[in-house]
Design a binder for these strands. Structure first.
Length: 604
RNA sequence: GCCCAUAUGGCUCAGGGGUAGAGCACUUCCUUGGUAAGGAAGAGGUCGUGAGUUCAAGUCUCACUAUGGGCUCCA
């Protein structure tokens, strides 16, 4: 028998392990390698091996489920002791000892009734069995260790070498927030050492790109314990970056026929009762009482836009009417979910509400989709779209929901745009299209959203005068493209690893005068660049030239420009390109033209 | 919110029951350097906050605050 054979794939594509395949298998062989099927078996068996090691180290442990996931495997268990990251090493060590015992992984079957007796003292296994409908259950055994398991597994422990336990975490039993919290250990495994190493260094790369790390290094943003969790502060560099992004998008909105508006930060609580936010979103809202009157800090910007719309009587000729606002909102996110700029309690949405007639939904949605496309292209993001339907907690009639959902489908279907469906993932006031982007290292993020809403116009009695002189209710389309400036800048930072394109970089050009006699020319250049909306600095600190070049590079400034005798005499600049470290000279005029062009690349 | 971990100068971190260390950054001086760390001196911390244990607490215990890893993946 081929000693690299670990299992088979049957004609339905199911993995059959050697323990289950019987004597004369006619299926396709699975060899021990990094194929999907092989990794699944390998990782699943590694999860078992980990459970075995934990059992030996902590005899009172009880195990729940230990599946293979997209990135490796985990096992959930209950344990008397507290396990921390430091204990992972000793578990790994025990796993390696077990491998040396050369256990085979054996399988046998018992009836469910027998299993219920066998695991009578193990309430977690009983919980697992509750979900199984089959009458026959399988048990996998390696040495003394036995586990209820559907398989498939590799034939023996000798196939398990290249693994790493990565994290220890808490996880609710069955993912239910009200249930008991179990301990979960995550791990990863590969068929060969090189792949494991490559995976671990990929994780290192992701760490290097972490926007929290880069944000500190580049002095973009900060948090302050005394000010409160999830409340970001923008430092000068970060504020410059953000201003550039806001400015690009501001112009893009005006070009597309949006009108800027701005609503107040707090509104009376009764407004939020009328809108349904108080009932459906109240847990996440900050409320306050002023002069015995209850107010709510806005978690969304819709109400302000509705009130502006209602201020003057509208005609069908005014529609579609597109209001947009960089709306600052506050949401009381649970403390445990806060994460850098990606999940905060105060943030600014690039929010817009389009008031239109029902027949205009499809074309308006399509225009928004095109807007999204040009923004994502600008930053080099791939993206996918997902239609989310009615959630459990929702307002409005089913028929209305159906109509709105159909409008979204029509817009995408009519233009052959691909999408998936997220059942029950909609907002409480309407269905939506979510835009999920993929960054430079393949991670996915939810940013933009397009939501159709028939409910709020109804609740606030929003009307326009139709062509036949009757009063009609417009449809509202809520939409955001970036989602929020905070989150989007966090994602951009990781996407570019801090090396922002010229039109976004907080400092775009840094002049390094070689000695004092060159400072005046450098300052003159800086002044001219700033006059042309380019952020330039002169780095004339008393440090060596090499050190200043190094620091400027580390700050990820797109253009490091050296100014010495030659440049002063010839009115030129010596540019060092960040990307390829190459040096070249340009005249002052050529330089200005080049920068002007690069600034224009941010136009959409 | 829940589980686990962490919290030492602006940043990154070492130390570990007998009252604080390093590198970078900062200040001053020397150096005026042609593309990724020139040299010297100096200043800066009641070790996250509050309690407790102890003759003695950054160090041990507890609470709080903040941060980090998780909390969809179904034997």
């Amino acid at each position: 028998m081929n000693e690299n054979l670990i299992g088979y794939i049957d004609d339905q594509g199911n993995i059959i392990d050697t323990q289950s395949a019987g004597e004369n298998p006619t299926f396709t062989a699975i060899e021990y390698d990094n194929s999907e099927a092989s990794l699944e078996m390998l990782r699943h068996s590694t999860a078992h091996l980990m459970a075995q090691a934990i059992t030996e180290l902590y005899p009172n442990s009880q195990f729940f489920v230990g599946p293979v996931i997209e990135e490796g495997f985990y096992y959930d268990f209950r344990i008397d002791e507290q396990i921390g990251e430091n204990d992972l090493k000793s578990i790994e060590k025990k796993m390696k000892e077990l491998i040396k015992k050369k256990y085979k992984i054996e399988k046998y079957e018992i009836s469910k009734a027998e299993a219920l007796v066998k695991f009578a003292n193990d309430d977690l296994k009983l919980k697992v069995m509750e979900r199984i409908t089959d009458d026959t259950l399988s048990i996998y055994k390696q040495g003394e260790f036995e586990d209820l398991c559907r398989g498939p597994h590799v034939p023996a422990l000798r196939f398990l070498h290249n693994f790493k336990l990565t994290r220890v975490a808490g996880a609710y039993l069955g993912g239910d927030e009200k249930a008991e919290m179990l301990t979960r250990i995550y791990g990863i495994a590969f068929a060969d050492k090189a792949s494991l190493k490559a995976h671990l260094s990929m994780l290192e790369e992701a760490k290097k790109r972490d926007h929290r790390k880069i944000g500190t290094e580049m002095e973009l943003f900060m948090f302050n314990e005394e000010a409160g969790a999830g409340l970001p502060f923008w430092m000068p560099k970060g504020a410059k970056l953000r201003y550039k992004l806001e400015s690009i998008l501001h112009k893009a909105h005006l070009r597309r026929g949006y009108e800027p508006v701005r609503g107040p930060e707090i509104l009376k609580a009764d407004m939020w009762r009328t809108s349904g936010h108080y009932a459906c979103y109240g847990d996440n809202m900050y409320l306050t009482t002023i002069d015995e009157q209850e107010y709510g800090i806005k978690p969304m910007n819709c109400l302000g836009h509705i009130l502006v719309f209602k201020q003057a009587q509208k005609s069908y000729r005014d529609l579609p009417l597109r209001y947009y606002e960089y709306g600052v909102v506050h949401r009381h996110e649970k403390s445990g979910v806060l994460h850098g700029l990606l999940r905060v309690r105060e943030f600014t949405q690039d929010d817009a509400h389009i008031f239109c007639e029902p027949e205009q939904i499809a074309s308006e949605v399509l225009e928004v989709v095109e807007f999204v496309d040009s923004v994502m292209k600008l930053f080099g993001f791939e993206y996918t779209m997902e239609i989310a339907t009615k959630p459990e907690k929702a307002i409005g009639e089913d028929a209305v929901w159906e109509l709105a959902t159909q409008g979204l489908r029509d817009a995408l279907d009519g233009n052959s745009l691909p999408y998936t469906i997220d059942e029950g993932g909609g907002a409480f006031y309407g269905p939506k299209i979510d835009i999920k982007i993929t960054d430079a290292i393949g991670r996915k993020w939810q940013c933009g959203t397009i939501q159709v809403d028939f409910n709020l116009p109804e609740r606030f009695d929003v009307e326009y005068v139709a062509e036949d002189n009757t009063r009609k209710k417009p449809v509202m389309i809520h939409r955001a493209i970036l989602g929020s400036f905070e989150r989007f800048i966090g994602i951009l930072t990781e996407h570019y690893a801090g090396e922002f394109p010229f039109f976004l970089a907080p400092v775009q050009v840094i002049f390094i005068p070689i000695s004092q006699s060159h400072v005046a020319y450098a300052n003159a250049l800086k002044k001219e660049l700033r006059y042309n909306d380019i952020d330039a600095e002169v780095y004339d600190k008393n440090d060596s030239l090499n050190k200043r070049v190094r620091n400027a590079e580390k700050q990820r400034v797109p253009y490091v420009v050296i100014i010495g005798d030659e440049e002063v005499t010839n009115k030129t600049v010596a540019i060092r390109d960040r990307r390829n470290k190459e040096q070249y000279n340009l005249t002052q005029d050529e330089f200005m033209v080049k920068l002007g062009k690069q600034l224009q690349e941010g136009k959409i």
